[in-house]
Design a protein around this nucleic acid. Structure first.
Length: 491
RNA sequence: CGGGGUGUGGCGCAGUUGGCUAGCGCACUUGCAUGGGGUGCAAGGGGUCGGAAGUUCGAGUCUUCUCACCCCGACCA
């Protein structure tokens, strides 16, 4: 097979970029740091949105929409929050252009300066909590369970397709509760929703945990996360759920009258996942032949490629293909019949392989004669000839099997690449030679974490939520520790 | 913002001790053959050489300025 793209071993980041480009997921735009998400890539995101949106609705949430622009003053109300985002905000200062008096194009009209600058949202806590103040007076107004699908802007220095771009798409849930307990339960519930989505839809195993102080969301009391491991041994945060305590309620003066008639501050949570998940999907499953997609999120689950020489053969084969397409669609399968005469079958095989279509069906004159079809699966690149009357069942079980095979494969990879380190030497050696997750003891201080980061670039991805307590000594300082935490180099 | 690099048809590149019609691969168009894993042959279309100024008989090539993008660092989902 002709190869004109990189392999993972040759150059992992080039391999990633090649897949994004060649599979037509996205491309760089004329705007620095911003990408164009192409139809095929956007279709994956839409499938993610559809599944997540249903899960949000099923847990009682409703969608709403808040402004893109946030008055600058809002940001200064929560101290940690400002500090966390100040360095990456885009700011609107003017509202009008005019013709350049020098004659070329348009220039900013300096007379149209805004009284108060507007920040383009890097996240919406401030504008939403300013709004919630008006929505909440009594315990009867609680809880508020709102989600919004939106774009946000964080002015990044270094960007990578899907993983880090200046503008990205995401959903952010913002909830308000009468009690700390309820807000915490919500935080955990949504973390579970994310883990469920990652594992059962994306087929990516994730670790659930708590972020260390250094990695915590600016303004949160506690940040929970799901962490996934990519094929190059680096970790990727796939979703976060924050317990915000009463921080934003206090900053925006959001109080409610309790049953007892006392005025109390509202408790909050926020949680989000972004188009970064598309990047995770690529890096978790794809191989040196291109993209590999889990059936549940694949825009096309099964593609039918006709094979023929003469017009007569084309007619016969197409007729059969259309019949199969209709049959499979009735079963709920997303099918594409590629009847373009402008490309040859071999070309199409490579095309769909590169685009990660889980199942491919090829039908030629021989098949029509014999009552068979050729069925190929993308995950393990195997194909077989089966009888036409077994096709429905075969495709359904193949889709199911591919979904599970991808998960098992990713899980096996993570297990192979999760190691314990009990000495500093061992820690550094694993990191340099193998990467992956490292389970090690840590003395619990931000200073130690920072020193480890400075020396190795590895950070604490999370403090696992499981209750495996084990006393030991910090891998860096030797001070006592009661639990292992997860270290890794991360995206 | 610090260090390094690159700008030449849609994409990837060559050409750079100044020299005449600026070239190659892929892609594109047309025709014929081909069609069960990226098809072959033939013909064809397409370029202000990032921009500006300068040196020169002559600039893709030299000089100065400028713009853009990429890579490495600090920051981050």
């Amino acid at each position: 097979m002709a190869k004109d793209f990189s392999t993972r071993a040759e150059n992992y980041s080039k391999w990633y970029n090649d897949i994004v480009q060649r599979a037509e997921l996205a491309e760089n735009s004329a705007v620095r740091g911003c990408m164009v998400i192409k139809p095929y890539g956007y279709a994956i995101w839409e499938n993610m949105q559809a599944a997540l949106d249903k899960m949000f609705k099923d847990t009682g949430h409703s969608n709403a929409y808040f402004p893109l622009f946030i008055p600058k003053s809002f940001f200064s109300k929560e101290a940690d929050h400002v500090e966390g985002f100040a360095k990456e905000c885009a700011i609107v200062t003017h509202y009008r252009l005019k013709n350049d008096p020098e004659g070329k194009g348009v220039v900013v009209d300096e007379d149209a300066k805004l009284e108060e600058e507007l920040i383009i949202r890097p996240t919406s806590e401030t504008i939403i909590w300013d709004t919630y103040r008006n929505w909440i007076q009594s315990y009867r107004d609680l809880p508020i369970l709102v989600n919004q699908w939106a774009n946000v802007v964080r002015w990044e220095m270094r960007t990578r397709m899907f993983l880090r771009t200046a503008e990205f798409l995401w959903q952010e849930g913002h909830t308000a509760h009468a009690t700390k307990q309820e807000a915490l339960e919500e935080t955990h519930q949504m973390l579970d929703v994310y883990a469920d989505f990652a594992e059962n839809h994306m087929a990516i195993p994730v670790l659930k945990g708590i972020k260390s102080e250094n990695e915590r969301f600016a303004g949160a009391v506690e940040t929970f996360c799901i962490e996934a491991l990519m094929q190059d041994g680096k970790a990727l945060q796939a979703g976060t759920s924050h317990f915000l305590g009463q921080n934003f309620a206090k900053a925006f003066d959001v109080k409610f009258a309790s049953k007892e008639g006392k005025l109390e501050y509202v408790w909050a949570s926020s949680w989000g996942v972004s188009t970064r998940l598309v990047g995770a999907l690529i890096m978790a499953h794809s191989d040196d032949n291109g993209l590999v997609l889990p059936p549940k999120l694949a825009p096309v689950q099964t593609v039918i490629v006709p094979i023929y020489k003469t017009e007569e053969q084309r007619r016969i084969v197409s007729e059969k293909a259309v019949e199969i397409k209709n049959r499979l669609e009735k079963l709920g399968v997303r099918v594409k019949f590629d009847d373009r005469d402008t490309h040859k079958p071999g070309w199409k095989f490579n095309e769909y392989e590169f685009k990660g279509v889980p199942v491919r069906i090829a039908i030629g004159p021989r098949d029509v004669e014999n009552g068979t079809v050729e069925v190929a699966r993308r995950d393990i690149l195997k194909k077989e000839i089966i009888a036409n009357d077994q096709l429905d069942q075969t495709v359904l079980s193949l889709l199911d099997d591919i979904q599970h095979t991808l998960f098992r494969r990713a899980l096996a990879f993570r297990e192979e690449n999760t190691r314990t380190a009990d000495s500093w030497e061992e820690f550094k050696q694993i990191l340099d030679e193998k990467g992956g997750f490292i389970l090690a003891h840590w003395d619990g201080t931000a200073e130690t974490e920072q020193k480890i980061k400075d020396e190795t670039k590895a950070t604490i991805r999370c403090i696992p939520l499981d209750d495996d307590k084990e006393s030991g000594k910090c891998v860096f300082t030797g001070k006592p520790s009661e639990k292992r935490v997860v270290f890794a180099r991360a995206y």
